[in-house]
Computed example of a mutant assay.
Amino acid sequence: MGAQWKAKHREAAANAKGKLFTKLTKEIMIAARTGADPDMNPRLRMAVEAARKQSMTRETLERAIKKGSGQLDGAVSYEKVVYEGFAPHQVPVIVECLTDNVNRTISNIRVLFRKGQLGASGSVSWDFDHVGLIEASPSAPDADVELAAIEAGAQDFEVEDDGSALFITDMTDLDLVSKALPDFGFSVDSAKIGYRPKNPVSLAGEALAEVEAFLGAIDDDDDVHEVYVGLAD
């Protein structure tokens, strides 16, 4: 059983990495639509940096950029679609998908939301702030999260138990703050435009487990790119 469990664990890890690479590739392709030069395209630069942190090969990166910018024939075109609704226990959820087939995606989303409630556009987004989200880790022993947030131009921050931090910015300041944080002792792990809940719901026990299972099933769908949930830590 031990050997079988280890093999299963390795397979699960490989599948998870494969799914992550698929998400990163889609993001690169969409970002490259507005320009294939990362130095001139902030969204593409951040997508490329995220992929490099996951050890994506240069060949794979360049192919994704060329596909997205139309330099290769037969490139797949991905579209961003956003769905809103509620998980069980009225927990608000926003689901961002990158898809080459919207009909397939909405069909899958409807099935996934059967244990919750799929809403119309705007049904829950009013309860979220649309902001820049930067995950960063301290790269210097004396790194001060509050000082870094103030000096780099972030609007707010949250500190994790392991010392890493989430810096919240205005959407237009995301690239500027990302570039400034290393000067104040923080290495940027990821940077994206996303949603932050205004009034997160607190759950425990079976109710929390039910919501986590619901969210896990959504996140496992191949077309799902990001899931934002109004759930308190």
Score class of each variant (00 low, 15 high):
Gly2Thr: 13
Ala3Phe: 12
Gln4Lys: 13
Lys6Asn: 15
His9Trp: 14
Asn15His: 12
Gly18Phe: 09
Gly18His: 11
Leu20Glu: 03
Phe21Glu: 13
Lys23Phe: 10
Thr25Glu: 15
Lys26Tyr: 05
Ile28Trp: 00
Met29Trp: 02
Arg33Ile: 04
Gly35Ala: 01
Asp37Ser: 07
Pro38Lys: 08
Leu44Lys: 07
Arg45Ala: 13
Met46Cys: 02
Ala47Val: 03
Glu49Ile: 09
Ala51Trp: 00
Met56Val: 02
Arg58Thr: 13
Glu59Gly: 03
Thr60Gln: 14
Thr60Met: 13
Lys66Asp: 15
Lys66Ser: 10
Gly68Glu: 14
Ser69Val: 02
Gly70Cys: 06
Gly70Tyr: 03
Gln71Ile: 07
Leu72Ser: 12
Leu72Glu: 12
Asp73Cys: 04
Gly74Met: 10
Ala75Phe: 01
Ala75Asn: 06
Val76Trp: 06
Ser77Asp: 04
Ser77Lys: 10
Val81Gln: 03
Val82Arg: 14
Ala87Ile: 02
Pro88Asn: 11
Pro88Tyr: 10
Val93Glu: 01
Ile94Gln: 07
Cys97Gln: 04
Leu98Cys: 10
Thr99Ala: 11
Asn101Gly: 04
Asn103Lys: 06
Arg104Gln: 11
Ile106Asp: 10
Ile109Glu: 05
Ile109Asp: 06
Arg110Glu: 04
Arg110Thr: 07
Arg110Cys: 02
Gln117Asn: 11
Gly119Arg: 09
Ala120Ser: 10
Ala120Val: 14
Gly122Thr: 13
Gly122Arg: 08
Ser123Glu: 08
Ser123Thr: 07
Asp129Asn: 12
Asp129Gly: 09
Ala136Phe: 00
Ser139Cys: 04
Pro141Gly: 04
Asp142Gly: 05
Ala143Asp: 01
Ala143Phe: 00
Val145Arg: 05
Val145Tyr: 01
Val145Gly: 03
Glu146Lys: 12
Ala149Asp: 02
Ile150Thr: 12
Ile150Ala: 08
Gln155Val: 05
Asp156Arg: 10
Phe157Tyr: 10
Phe157Glu: 05
Asp162Ser: 01
Ala165Pro: 00
Leu166Cys: 09
Asp170Lys: 14
Thr172Asp: 14
Asp173Lys: 11
Leu174Pro: 00
Leu176Pro: 06
Ser178Cys: 08
Lys179His: 08
Lys179Asn: 13
Pro182Val: 06
Asp183His: 09
Phe186Ser: 02
Ser187Tyr: 02
Ser190His: 03
Ile193Arg: 13
Tyr195Glu: 11
Arg196Trp: 03
Lys198Asn: 08
Lys198Tyr: 05
Asn199Met: 06
Asn199Thr: 07
Asn199Ser: 04
Pro200Arg: 12
Val201Ile: 15
Ser202Ala: 15
Glu206Tyr: 15
Glu206Asp: 15
Glu206Asn: 14
Ala207Asp: 12
Leu208His: 13
Leu208Met: 11
Ala209Glu: 14
Glu210Ile: 06
Glu210Trp: 12
Glu212Trp: 07
Leu215Arg: 04
Gly216Tyr: 02
Ile218Met: 12
Asp219Gln: 15
Asp220Tyr: 11
Asp222Trp: 05
Val224Pro: 00
Glu226Leu: 14
Val229Asn: 06
Ala232Asp: 14
Ala232Pro: 11
